[in-house]
Write a protein that binds this DNA or RNA. Structure first.
Lengths: 182, 182
DNA sequence: ATACTGTTTGGTAACTCTACCAAGATTTGG
DNA sequence: CCAAATCTTGGTAGAGTTACCAAACAGTAT
């Protein structure tokens, strides 16, 4: 494993576990087992580092998400919302992109990919939603996950399940697999 | 206006315009026109300061939101999603609460209040949604706003309008249609 | 061997941030 | 009017951060 990969892996882990504020050069370098000054050899500025970590994190999440054919897609969605490290990572990404316009393209790609996999998941469930429905489905999942991260209470946990159930109820017939859309 | 109020107002402004990372004692003190050391007189620790600013910000947003009987509630919702300073503030609050459990109660109160006002807005529109529908409505609005903050692109702006329209279409018929569909 | 290229390290300058302290300035209560 | 409480400031210790630099190191081609 190259030093560069070790650095990126350490950065992703840090971003997952402690959020954007903990993503500093000394901590990443220490976690990767190299000197801090050596990190700047690979990533001269903090923005380059952040961009590389963001893309790595995005790729990780997508391959993990797309690479696993879930037994129950609805369960997979629920688990994804409950998985705080990823929500934390995404929140950090959004906050960083808000302040650093060069990151927004990466965020856009991530949003598109996630939405595509949500559409795929829904079609596996027997739904055939149109684009606007996938949009609100995606948005609602993001919103539920964010509101859970900020509260981390029994109530917010419960809302994840209730919200998901309600979302599925809003879509066209669940019991008719392969049902065509108008 | 007392010094304490000036400090809180400056903190809210900073949180709105530059996000959580910019919320430091020196900057708030400078914006409020007092010495930095004096800030610690009122707020000995950073967490106390952050909590006070968060609650002030929450109260501001709610009173402004609830205090104005909007001509068109749907327009108000669209405007709220597009208002980046508030989204930025909420994102910072969530991130802070994620790392600082003592903030989560304030976030919970905020979430409840916002959801209540959304329900009120929807009933003004002629809808009579049940609780789970308000939940997904709220979640979708949060998600749309967050995804827009992280991209700030023409596409994300467009999704705000499309998503809102789709959300309203998912709810039961308006019993008193005040405005014809565009 | 020698020169060249890329890797790695320790050290550090310059900056920012939080928290504290001693000492004035101002207001308030008796 | 005076004393006590409250407010306010400059200064600073100590920790953390980014970014840079000179120098040691390793491999590879000449």
């Amino acid at each position: 494993m190259s030093v560069k990969q070790r650095l990126l892996a350490a950065g992703v882990t840090l971003l997952h576990e402690q959020g954007l504020a903990a993503l500093t050069q000394p901590r990443i370098a220490k976690a990767a087992g190299v000197s801090q000054s050596h990190l700047t050899y690979y990533f001269p500025t903090r923005n380059e580092l952040l961009l590389a970590i963001a893309e790595q994190s995005v790729n990780d999440a997508l391959t993990r998400q797309l690479g696993s054919p879930e037994a129950d897609p609805a369960q997979a969605l629920a688990a994804a919302m409950r998985f705080l490290p990823r929500v934390r990572m995404l929140l950090g990404l959004v906050a960083a992109a808000d302040q650093e316009p060069s990151l927004r393209e990466a965020v856009s790609r991530l949003v598109d990919h996630v939405r595509q996999s949500i559409a795929q998941l829904l079609s596996h469930l027997g739904y055939a939603p149109e684009a606007p429905q996938v949009l609100v489905f995606h948005a609602a999942i993001v919103g539920l996950a964010v509101m859970n991260l900020g509260r981390q209470s029994p109530q917010s946990e419960a809302e994840l399940a209730v919200g998901l159930r309600q979302l599925l109820a809003l879509l066209p017939h669940p019991t008719a697999p392969g049902s065509p859309a108008p």
